[in-house]
């Protein structure tokens, strides 16, 4: 399982490429550098490989964080409020990326307080005071990420 955090938690001393490579390194994936380049290209940051986190926008930082999680090659991705620190447009981009991963066969678990975001999921588990209060597809089925408004 890999993680994507609300506040990105990138390593400030490493470049975008190295942050992503970290995911591949800890998973002991062969050709870690090549994997990192590929994943970063996939999240649209092929031009920002050697930028340090503070040189990136919030959306770019979160994309690096997602790339880092993807670089591990783990089948489950747990994203804790992945859009919590982002504006709407960037948030939509990030959700689109996560949706892509789900459609590519990964299990993507998103933790959110935002009911609108939950509408993009295939399955929504609602918790209240630590207890499951509902479990199933969103009412009316999943909607495309581009259709979200919040």
């Amino acid at each position: 399982m890999s993680f994507v955090f609300q506040t990105f938690n990138l390593f400030p001393g490493l470049t975008a490429l190295e942050n992503v490579r970290f995911g591949a390194d800890v998973a002991r994936r062969p050709g870690a550098e090549a994997v990192a380049r590929e994943v970063l290209g996939h999240v649209g940051l092929a031009e920002r490989l050697h930028h340090f986190p503070h040189m990136l926008s919030g959306g770019e930082q979160q994309r690096v964080a997602i790339a880092r999680a993807l670089a591990t090659g783990n089948p489950i991705l747990l994203a804790d409020e992945p859009t919590g620190e982002l504006d709407h447009r960037t948030g939509v981009q990030i959700l689109g990326l996560l949706r892509e991963q789900a459609e590519a066969g990964r299990c993507v678990v998103i933790v959110t307080h935002n009911r609108v975001i939950s509408r993009t999921a295939d399955r929504v588990v609602e918790l209240s005071s630590g207890r499951v209060v509902s479990d199933g597809p969103p009412p009316g089925g999943p909607v495309p990420v581009e259709a979200l408004r919040w």
Binding site: F8, P12, G13, L14, E18, L56, G58
Partner: peptide, 21 residues
Amino acid sequence: PSTTRRSGLAPLVRRFTVGDS
């Protein structure tokens, strides 16, 4: 994101890429 810690002088050695991350 705007409060992300800065990298200080780390960019000076960005080309020093010996070993893993």
